[in-house]
């Protein structure tokens, strides 16, 4: 007993962290487990193990169309937001200029505005201008809320660089462009990749802003929300779980690649 209390007081924080992670992952495991449920229309009660949902992920009506829309919106928004945000991050991270604090404020404000206000304001503008909500307004909205996150992520990476590396390149007679191309950009690249991954996951998972601006276009989160009223098909759990594993693989592969590069240097 005494041994146990001593072990507990020594490892209290680790036990606590374990409980924290358990809490974080219970719904993820639950979603994964119920992707194997031999359910009918609704997926509420466990009815036995089956692989049929994984063999036929598009089995539920409209689910893969919704998934396709989400992937399309996510990819286009990610590319645009990453380019626009990275340019701003370089300006903020590398140059002194008048209007710096205004720029910082303009980047911070979208992150400090609740999604419902962002969604409602964009919808109001589109309606005023006579633009029908749909795919393009949704992409416009997603790029808007992703830019700030890209700026913050890439800027942090730029700030963490050792300025002596660039000075060394210049000392070795590289001009400004060569220094940027051969030294700065490769060093910032992991930050840009992280920002793109973040943008994609924000866009793919967004419901509130999308719901305001997508009109009749269905995305995966919209599909889940609408289906929730009458029972979510197990195929939604298959897609949710697959996204989880794909993202984990992307992160792990990225980590391994960057470790390899470090070893080379």
């Amino acid at each position: 007993m005494k041994k146990l209390t001593r072990w507990l007081s020594k490892n209290l924080i680790k036990v606590y962290a374990f409980l924290g992670f358990t809490y974080l992952f219970i719904p993820v495991f639950y979603t994964f487990a119920f992707s194997f449920n031999n359910s009918g229309r609704s997926n509420l009660v466990w009815k036995g193990f089956t692989l049929k949902n994984w063999k036929n992920p598009c089995g539920a009506p409209d689910i893969c169309m919704a998934l396709g829309n989400s992937l399309k919106i996510g990819l286009i928004s990610t590319i645009l937001a990453t380019v626009l945000g990275t340019l701003i991050a370089f300006a903020l991270g590398r140059y002194k200029f008048a209007g710096r604090s205004t720029t910082n404020l303009l980047i911070f404000l979208p992150m400090a505005t609740p999604e419902i206000v962002l969604g409602a304001s964009l919808l109001t503008m589109f309606l005023n201008l006579g633009i029908t909500p749909g795919l393009v307004p949704t992409i416009i909205a997603h790029v808007m809320f992703c830019i700030s996150f890209v700026v913050v992520t890439v800027k942090a990476r730029i700030a963490s660089l050792d300025p002596r590396l660039e000075q060394a390149a210049m000392d070795l007679y590289a001009n400004e462009w060569q220094t940027f191309r051969r030294v700065t950009l490769p060093l910032v690249a992991p930050g840009i990749a992280a920002a793109a991954l973040l943008s994609f996951s924000l866009s793919f998972d967004d419901f509130i802003i999308t719901n305001f601006n997508s009109g009749t276009v269905t995305t995966f989160p919209k599909f889940v929300y609408t289906a929730a009223a009458r029972g979510i098909p197990a195929q939604a759990n298959v897609i949710g779980s697959s996204m989880f594993f794909i993202a984990l693989i992307v992160v792990v592969v990225g980590q391994v690649l960057s470790n390899k590069r470090k070893v080379k240097i």
């Binding site: 998972d205 419901f207 989160p221 889940v224 939604a236 949710g240 996204m243 984990l248």
Partner: peptide
């Protein structure tokens, strides 16, 4: 957990 749709997790 972010990568499993937050709606699916909330419904879970």
């Amino acid at each position: 957990p972010f990568f499993t749709s937050f709606l699916l997790r909330t419904i879970a």
